[in-house]
Write a protein that binds this DNA or RNA. Structure first.
Length: 590
RNA sequence: GGGGGCGUGGUGUAGUGGCUUAACAUGCGGCCCUGUCAAGGCCGAGACCGCGGGUUCGAAUCCCGUCGCUCCCGCCA
């Protein structure tokens, strides 16, 4: 080893010891006769003092930030008054008696000893330097602890971790697959898994009643702050369980994880709330509500059913709804602030936002002239609106109203700073619809995925009224993010085949794409179900980050490129020819 | 595929029609300095303001296009 101790591990108990350290120059303070260097390694930092005649002064003067040094010295108590209370090693220092430069460093493209926000382009190009920074170190250490906790917990609960292949099979449903061309089979492709869904179900057929995996998943869709093309799930599947068995286990896992890994986080609900999908949409306008604050949506179609206000009147005649949220204490909002709200709502798909301000000198806003005082009274009673509140109405189809007000709720959350830091509001959303109508392709899509078990009581409605069929699917949500999605699965060939048919797959496609799993169901498949919490998103929340790139060592940028390695990149003609691939792109595109 | 924001020395910012020979901090190079911890002091190098076109007597600044990054919508079973 190049070192006897970690820089950050030295304490007063080491005083008098001769130690050898190795690490990076975090900061240097050159006073001419004496030079201080803060040496950093993965354990932390310590101040090294160079004032001995035994070390060449010209050598020390050359040293710059991020050079890699090996330093031998004596651990000393710092002179009285020169302690640094901001450093765990602040009461001691290492008086150098020898120093070797292991590797110098060029001038850095951006500072490492500083948490200044740097352009993402540059950070990602020099990701290995970005990761040297304290914040990224802490994030990746946190990620490690989270994953270790999951493994330990599940191991203690008799789960078996099993790896499943990355090279698997493309499926017709779901996200766009990443395809991998096959050299040995011209014109054929593997697909990288969107999730190990089928494999974990087949492991249940195989008798592994409690399976888990820290599983990498791939989806070739556009990126978002909380979406990367490859991401990590804690994949869990269990046999002979009902929905509540899984919810109970996962709730216990996550509750203990947060308490133990990030004790400063406060769990707002224990036990967690359980909302139905319909309830979540009605009350919060989304199936992944942020429950850290109230500001619920109110359906006021009834209160305003006799309104003379043309927009409301027309909406109600068309069978649409009028819903509102209250912006507390915003009755005095200026035209400009209200315009910001309206333009945000329009981006979300609203035709507009109708306002009513309950200001001390009477009601104001768009509705002022069109609302009776008894309507105002009823409105206040029903919504809890108070003097000083601004009421924001949207009238439209229910789905649009929910989407817009749900987004507006989050907009106001940030604008009005409504959230307590460190709050974690976990909840379950259950009873999702089985199918969603795909207007573009005029067919039914699986709302969760096609292996989800419809609710038993809804099975008879599969043919007559697919829209009303609910499924045994559930989401875990937290602070406005979907952190996990799961379901009880179908384990019966006939039901599974029926679902594929409703989704518009031909018998041939069903046989070709899913024959293996259908056949497996005929060999004694146990009832089973599972869930897959997203590791990146969870760590992101625990690390107080707003982008999952911050908790992934080498992420892609928003255009799905790796700026450090410059991927994706061209393949050679030889590679392509071995893969039996001819390109259909112009030279400029290459 | 669509919309918003951003793009100025290595980095972070200021400058939004003439005061600019583009400013400040930090980093970089040099000199001084024996107790600092974001050390300090002095000196110096470093950006034709993402790129292309236009308006104007005059453009970092206004307009158009384009590229890149980012956030959002679509998409994400």
């Amino acid at each position: 080893m190049y070192k006897t101790h970690g820089c950050g591990d030295l304490r007063e108990e080491h005083i008098g010891e001769k130690v050898t350290l190795a690490g990076w120059v975090h900061r240097r303070r050159d006073h001419g006769g004496v030079t201080f260097i803060d040496l950093r390694d993965s354990s932390g930092r310590v101040q090294v003092v160079f004032n001995s005649k035994s070390i060449s002064q010209t050598l020390i003067e050359k040293i710059r930030l991020e050079w890699v040094l090996q330093v031998t010295g004596i651990v000393c108590l710092r002179p009285a008054g020169s302690e640094n209370p901001n450093l765990p090693t602040g009461t001691i220092e290492v008086s150098a008696i020898g120093c070797e430069i292991l590797n110098p460093a060029k001038a850095l493209p951006f500072p490492i000893n500083d948490e200044e926000m740097i352009d993402e382009n540059i950070r990602l190009t020099y990701r290995y330097l970005d990761l040297r920074r304290e914040r990224m170190h802490q994030n990746l250490i946190l990620r490690h602890r989270v994953i270790k906790f999951m493994r330990d917990y599940l191991d203690a609960h008799n789960f078996i971790e099993i790896e499943t292949p990355m090279l698997f099979k493309t499926t017709p449903e779901g996200a766009r697959d990443y395809l991998v061309p096959s050299r040995l089979y011209p014109g054929k492709f593997y697909a990288l898994p969107q999730s190990p869904q089928q494999l974990k179900q087949l492991l249940q057929v195989a008798g592994f009643e409690r399976y888990f995996q820290i599983a990498r998943c791939f989806r070739d869709e556009d990126l978002r702050g909380d979406r990367q093309p490859e991401f990590t799930q804690l994949d869990i599947e269990m046999s002979f369980v009902t929905r509540d068995d899984i919810l109970t286990l996962v709730e216990d896992l996550f509750t203990n994880l947060v308490v133990s890994v990030t004790p400063k986080k406060k769990l707002l609900f224990s036990p967690w709330q359980i909302l139905t999908y319909t309830e979540a949409l009605d009350r919060f306008g989304t199936d992944k509500p942020d429950l850290r604050f109230g500001m619920e949506l109110h359906d006021v179609s009834d209160v305003l059913k006799n309104s003379e206000f043309q927009i409301f009147k027309n909406a109600l005649i068309a069978g649409e709804v009028i819903k509102c949220i209250l912006a507390p204490g915003c009755a005095d909002y200026s035209r400009k602030k209200i315009d910001e709200i309206i333009s945000f709502a329009k981006e979300q798909g609203a035709k507009g936002v109708i306002t009513l301000a309950l200001s001390p000198d009477g009601v104001k806003g768009t509705l002022q002239k069109f609302i009776t005082s008894s309507e105002v009274d009823t409105l206040c009673t029903q919504t809890g609106a108070q003097q000083g509140d601004l009421i924001l109405f949207v009238a439209d189809r229910k789905s649009i109203v929910n989407k817009v007000l749900g987004a507006l709720r989050l907009f106001l959350r940030d604008r009005l700073k409504l959230i307590t830091s460190d709050a974690m509001a976990f909840a379950w959303v259950v009873d999702f619809p089985m199918f969603e109508w795909n207007e573009e392709e005029k067919k039914w899509d699986a709302a969760h995925h096609p292996f989800t078990m419809p609710k038993k009581e809804d099975l008879p409605k599969l043919d007559s009224d697919p829209a009303s069929v609910l499924s045994d699917a559930y989401d875990m949500v937290c602070n406005g993010y979907e952190l996990a999605s799961g379901s009880i699965r179908i384990h019966d060939r006939a039901v599974q085949t029926r679902i594929f048919q409703i989704l518009g797959l031909s018998d041939e496609e069903i046989r070709g794409k899913f024959g293996h799993i259908l056949e497996a169901f005929e060999f004694g498949a146990p009832p089973h179900g599972g869930i897959a919490p997203g590791v990146d998103r969870l760590v992101m929340l625990l690390a107080d980050e707003v982008n999952i790139r911050e908790v992934i060592a080498f992420p892609k940028n928003q255009s799905a490129r790796d700026l450090m390695a410059d991927a994706p990149s061209s393949a050679t003609d030889k590679q392509l020819s071995e893969l039996h691939i001819r390109l259909d792109v112009s030279d400029e595109e290459l």
